[in-house]
Design a protein around this nucleic acid. Sequence first.
DNA 1: GTCTATAGTGTGATAGAC
DNA 2: GTCTATCACACTATAGAC
Lengths: 229, 229
Amino acid sequence: MPRMGPQERRTEQRREQREALRERILEVSREIVRREGFASLSMRKLAEAIDYSPAALYLHFKSRGDIARALRAEGHASLRAAFLAHTSIVDPAARLNAMGRAYVEFGLAEPETYRLMFMEHTDSAQAGADATGNGHAAEHGATTLSLIADAFVELRAANRLPAHAAPVACAEGLWANLHGIVALKLTGAALPETPAATLVELSLDAWFPPANRTEPRFDSANRPDTSTR
Amino acid sequence: MPRMGPQERRTEQRREQREALRERILEVSREIVRREGFASLSMRKLAEAIDYSPAALYLHFKSRGDIARALRAEGHASLRAAFLAHTSIVDPAARLNAMGRAYVEFGLAEPETYRLMFMEHTDSAQAGADATGNGHAAEHGATTLSLIADAFVELRAANRLPAHAAPVACAEGLWANLHGIVALKLTGAALPETPAATLVELSLDAWFPPANRTEPRFDSANRPDTSTR
DNA sequence: GTCTATAGTGTGATAGAC
DNA sequence: GTCTATCACACTATAGAC
């Protein structure tokens, strides 16, 4: 460990201050988005909330979209954490059930964050246009998705998947299905009047039929039945 | 048929002119939305396109959102028409397959219209706030959805519906699943890299297992006897 | 019915003083 | 690093002349 001279220590302090402010901006942004949605996160409002001038924000974030990226990354981390809580379930089908439920619960519990992550990506492509060379949103999503795909791989290995279906495709399919449930609920359309929990039940039953009721699927042994609503 | 005096004829002409202009506005709006999305349909742009002043628009539509409603209604009619093309299929499962495919095709073929119909309804609730007492978007959707629900009723009657599931709930579930596929593709997220067609295939197979497969979808005989967890 | 003109409000981002 | 001031836009909707 190299010793620091007073010089280094001072710049080190500055760096920490910098990071602290950046974190603070992120924190406030996160809260605003959570309560009012990303659409109503304006640089002015944000600046006022952290008691700085709007211009100060641009010292820490290149643009408003840059903040969005950061928040999306947080969201993906959070979702991934929710998934990891179920990796200990041995049976892949049961695990997928639990994760599927967790996914929908996440979306309904944090609607605006979910929207930011999966429903407002309209701009999409040009993310790569930045010289900064990021746009790793895909990456975050992919690692999370792989938790799902892994379970399908296991199913496949146990010969419990129809031959022609690629595990990754299955994972994306299941994901898309669940996304549909969340998305419809979040748009506030009157139409799916069936409770989300029921829709999830139906979808998961379709993917992983309760062959004989004996074979445990949602068995209450390892899952308290928190009904999302 | 009552004869018209010159008086009535004149007012009749005026009424027709009025309707014609309204129709023209709608026509141009539809095209703009189709190409650029509803978000970029501004009253100014629209006015310029039909060669009137912005103010003129408000004589035919109460607001921008009012135009959105009209376009949504058109969209629902169009979708319904796509469904009706398959009502002649006798087997309910096969019919649902066809309709499901048609649904996704519709969404992918008219992404911006689809977005307007199902993905931008964020405002939702206050639609009823208008004194005009409309907000019947739900109604449109419901009649279309009933085409799906009907098929589920038939399946149920033929005892081909696995369990206790209510037909309407099934219809909404299937719909939500397909919506998810379309929605993810439309947001331009990098992530579902599997082609939509494949995802649709997987989803529909899950709901309506192909006949050649044995009754329990995942052969429980092959299941390793590991207890969950 | 249709126009011109504009009110009123929002936005993201930047220049330049300190 | 931070601020003030501002550019350069966009928007919906309306008042009031014709």
